[in-house]
Design a protein around this nucleic acid. Structure first.
Length: 323
DNA sequence: ACAGGTCAAGTCGTA
DNA sequence: TACGACTTGACCTGT
């Protein structure tokens, strides 16, 4: 089994390369010259995109094929007031987006977004649903501006339960079915750490034909008593059939016993290896997104540990093979 | 230059 | 019904 590692949104190794610089709306609205203020926002966005490209170059130098973009690339996008004014930063940002997309394609990278937990398709509230769809649309638009095909995914959670998980799941499915196909084909669903377990998320995935991203850490703190055994993993892996990318999982280690849901600085090799060994016979390829506090720093450290582990062959600086 | 407070979102538990 | 906790990196204010 070939296992590729990746990380999320920012580097703890490359300095001054934040892809998430922003401006608060308070600061923005205090600027007297509206045109200059808008220009400032777009400058920040360009800088974020430029830093994203820098991170991709850094990734390439370290054989990292897997990366999740920051969702904060364009400051204040989606803000009500700017929306009302008809602000559209995309035309100006198009060259920067295209440069990222070309680099991704040229070096055969796998990239994703993770719209944050305010994107809730299970919501009973029309307004929240509207905002959620608009947010998904903006993320998809960024992929489109990059010129990336549907292998570039937006990963989200099922959402809240509102006291009736069954009803919430049904609402998610109904709302999903009404989405624009260009959004539908970009979605993946991940089990969360409080509400929708692996089994419940997988059930939704199977019903709507969407691939599932398994989060091992979330499963550890919200398993619903279900053991993550071979048959369950096979069902998860099966949701990826026909996707032209291998299954992807998320991995992090608990911060402490007191805060088991928190993310630790690093990922313990043993936590990952135990799972990999349990599935290696059924999975030729697997992508593992690390969600550790130390980001790429944690990836490098994990690779150092994996080098020492038995039954592991190192293929490159961010890829191992289980033998 | 740094510390500590604030910001933004939606859900959920507690009062 | 109202409000604080949750979460996160970055902003912002004051020293």
């Amino acid at each position: 089994m070939i296992v590729r590692l990746g990380y999320v949104a920012m580097s703890t190794v490359v300095e001054n390369a934040s892809p998430s610089r922003t401006m608060t709306y308070t600061t923005f609205s205090k600027l007297a010259d509206r045109e200059a203020a808008i220009l400032k926002l777009e400058r920040i966005a360009e800088e974020n995109l430029h830093n994203t490209l820098r991170l991709l170059r850094h990734n390439r130098a370290h054989d990292i094929h897997l990366y999740r973009f920051s969702s904060k690339l364009i400051p204040l996008i989606g803000h009500e007031d700017l929306e009302r004014e008809g602000w559209d930063p995309f035309p100006r940002l198009e060259p920067a987006f295209r440069a990222i997309g070309e680099y991704v394609v040229e070096h055969d990278m796998r990239v994703s977004f993770h719209p944050d937990h305010f994107t809730v398709l299970s919501t009973p509230r029309d307004e929240v649903l509207r905002h959620s769809i608009a947010d998904l649309d903006r993320h998809v638009r960024m992929f489109e501006a990059m010129g990336l095909d549907e292998r570039a995914k937006c990963n989200i959670h099922v959402g809240g339960a509102y006291g009736d998980k069954e009803a919430a799941a049904k609402r998610f499915i109904a709302n999903f079915e009404r989405l624009d196909p260009r959004i539908k084909e970009r979605l993946t669903l991940e089990n969360d750490d409080k509400t929708f377990t692996v089994a419940e998320t997988l059930d939704v995935c199977e019903r709507i034909g969407v691939p599932m991203v398994l989060d091992l850490h979330h499963h550890a703190v919200n398993s619903g008593g279900m053991e993550l055994d071979q048959p369950l993993w096979e069902r998860i892996a099966y949701t990826w059939v026909g996707q032209r990318v291998p299954p992807k999982i998320h991995m992090s280690s608990p911060k402490s016993e007191k805060d088991p849901r928190g993310h630790a600085d690093d990922v313990r090799a043993e936590d990952l290896l135990a799972f990999l060994r349990s599935i290696r016979l059924f999975t030729p390829e697997l992508d593992v997104m690390l969600e550790a506090k130390r980001k790429d720093g944690a990836l490098f450290r994990l690779m150092d540990e994996l080098k020492e582990a038995s039954g592991i062959r190192v293929r490159d600086a961010a890829t191992v093979e289980l033998i």
